[in-house]
Write a protein that binds this DNA or RNA. Structure first.
Lengths: 211, 211
DNA sequence: GTATATAGACCGACTGGTTGGTCTGTACCA
DNA sequence: TGGTACAGACCAACCAGTCGGTCTATATAC
């Protein structure tokens, strides 16, 4: 049923979008890369937007199905959550280009500014990774967690905040910070360190407002 | 030193970008909303790109400074990390519009597709939140962690993967998934549940490849 | 105190190139 | 014969950035 050309358009555009972002690729670019024409494109898609929708649907449908399966297969929340995380992470392996189109910063600044921005971000990452590695060396953080992945999980967890945080929401930013810190520290501290830093681990207001 | 108009342009464009995304706002839109002109705009900025850079620099400089402060102020990695997380989260309160410009999906699909996409994403969130709430009711997950925030922290942590995951990287997707699950489960499980689900908590390969 | 010079802030019509989408035509197939 | 799949010339709208010019304020000269 699904035409060969349609699949080829999706595949080709995916590669282009991943490189140059959705706004950095024109319909002309896509059809040229496919060896087809505007007519061919618009025969299969109502608009450039519909192409994007189709791409999104591929991976979102996958994780949704897997999440349902997880709930049906296991009968305790822990196992269900574990399975959901498994499939959720897996989707990045299966559909990375699809997902990149959506979450990638599709800004594509001129090299000069792009470079300046990247530099400061790298500095920040370095500090974070250093602290984590140092914590592992000193025996405060569990060594079996790869420092870089731990660091990235923190960056992701916190950066995602912009999607849902509202100033006049139910929780203050300090409470949110405390919960994040709670989850992360409980997640990565060694048993020894947990005892030592006990007050930090349960949303204590000890350091509240210090930063 | 900094001109009044320049500040006004930044402020106004921020509001527009937050609503319509960087690509959804033209320089004309900005100058009209400011009551200024193209000339006024290009007198203060070399390009639309430079405006974006200025916006980025505001918040990245803030977190960078705070991270340095954290390292200087505290002398153990745990306290340093705690302080870094505090300031990192806080920046979303101080500079949310700035950050949104960068991480927001600036795609702005036509309403029809936008709606379809949102629906499936909401379904996914619902499943995740349900599992977490259920886990709290059954005593497997710590009740003091707000379910919605916990859910969002998982979504963020995993979604961020697209930024750094490489198929031919050092770690397989299964290993990455195991580390994520490890951090999260150690972060949110009750002591009771941790004992019960012990094999899951330390990157055991028990369920590997099941999803 | 007044005329002149200079600089910086700002104006807005205009341009050159681009882009999503349309439309007519054609080749092929049932 | 009619319908589907595709080709590609064409168009109208758009948009970042330009450029000649104005207006105001301050400095300098006399």
């Amino acid at each position: 049923m699904t035409s060969e050309l349609k699949e080829k358009i999706i595949e080709t555009s995916l590669a282009l979008f991943e490189k140059h972002g959705f706004h950095g690729v024109t319909v002309k670019d896509i059809v040229e890369a496919c060896g087809t024409s505007k007519g061919g494109f618009y025969h299969h898609f109502q608009s450039k937007d519909e192409l994007l929708y189709v791409i999104h649907d591929k991976f979102i449908s996958y994780v949704l199905t897997k999440a349902h399966q997880a709930k049906d297969t296991y009968d305790t929340p822990t196992l269900q959550l574990y399975a959901i995380i498994q499939s959720f992470v897996k989707v990045f392996d299966l559909y990375k280009p699809h997902i990149s189109v959506f979450y990638q910063e599709s800004l594509y600044l001129k090299p000069r500014f792009d470079h300046l921005i990247k530099k400061k971000r790298d500095q920040y990452k370095k500090i974070l990774f250093d602290v984590i590695r140092n914590g592992q060396e000193k025996g405060e953080f569990r060594k079996e967690l790869v420092a870089e992945i731990t660091g990235m999980s923190i960056l992701g967890m916190v950066n995602w905040t912009h999607k849902w945080y509202k100033r006049d929401g139910e929780k203050t930013i300090e409470e949110i910070a405390a919960i994040f810190a709670d989850i992360i520290l409980n997640g990565i501290l060694t048993e020894d360190a947990k005892e030592r830093y006990h007050p930090l681990l349960h949303q204590s207001p000890v350091m509240k407002n210090q930063f």
